[in-house]
């Protein structure tokens, strides 16, 4: 794949940044507005897919290599599990217990601030990372469509 014409390349290199930023916004404001980890992650991945379409697969791979993406994938999943386990360990309360919310935010005038939902934004970030990286991996591997590619990407992360 060589990529498309210069017009498409120029425009998409600009738009890509905006899409990426929008994805981050959707993830960070997931607890206040519609959206969240999954939707934001898909948007993040789509910015890379745009790169892949405009510049060709090799260029996208240079930007975000396969091993790095799979590391990010795992990091997202582990972060998500870590948030859940923190709830378990923090005062021996409970798996997925929203410890930040219960310990530090209850009773303060916190509603509708960016920092108002305790662990939920953290989980959203984790899911966004996971979904973005794994969706990118899926599309990349499918576009390779040849040798050394294993089926079995595992984005069955629970939302």
């Amino acid at each position: 794949m060589k990529g498309m014409t210069i017009i498409v390349k120029t425009i998409s290199s600009w738009v890509k940044v905006l899409i990426f930023l929008f994805g981050i916004y959707i993830i960070l404001f997931g607890h206040l507005t519609p959206g969240g980890g999954f939707a934001g992650g898909v948007i993040l991945a789509s910015s890379y897919v745009l790169l892949m379409l405009a510049f060709g697969r090799e260029f996208a791979e240079e930007n975000l290599s396969l091993p790095l993406a799979s590391k990010l994938d795992c990091a997202g999943a582990l972060l998500f599990a870590a948030v859940a386990l923190c709830g378990l360990l923090y005062g021996a309360a409970g798996f997925f217990w929203n410890f930040i919310h219960q310990k530090y935010l209850m009773g303060t005038d916190y509603e509708f601030n960016l920092v108002s939902a305790g662990t939920i934004p953290l989980s959203n970030i984790a899911i966004g990372l996971k979904v973005g990286a794994s969706l990118f991996l899926v599309i990349l591997t499918l576009s390779m469509c040849c040798k050394d590619f294993k089926p079995g990407s595992t984005e069955n992360e629970k939302e």
């Binding site: 999954f38 979904v131 969706l135 899926v138 591997t141 499918l142 590619f149 089926p151 079995g152 990407s153 595992t154 984005e155 069955n156 992360e157 629970k158 939302e159």
Partner: peptide, 18 residues
């Protein structure tokens, strides 16, 4: 539905790759 979509995305990717 959101969860079901995530799951179906996973199985779709696997099915297409197979």
């Amino acid at each position: 539905v959101l969860t079901a979509i995530v799951i179906s995305l996973g199985s779709l990717a696997l099915m297409i790759s197979i």
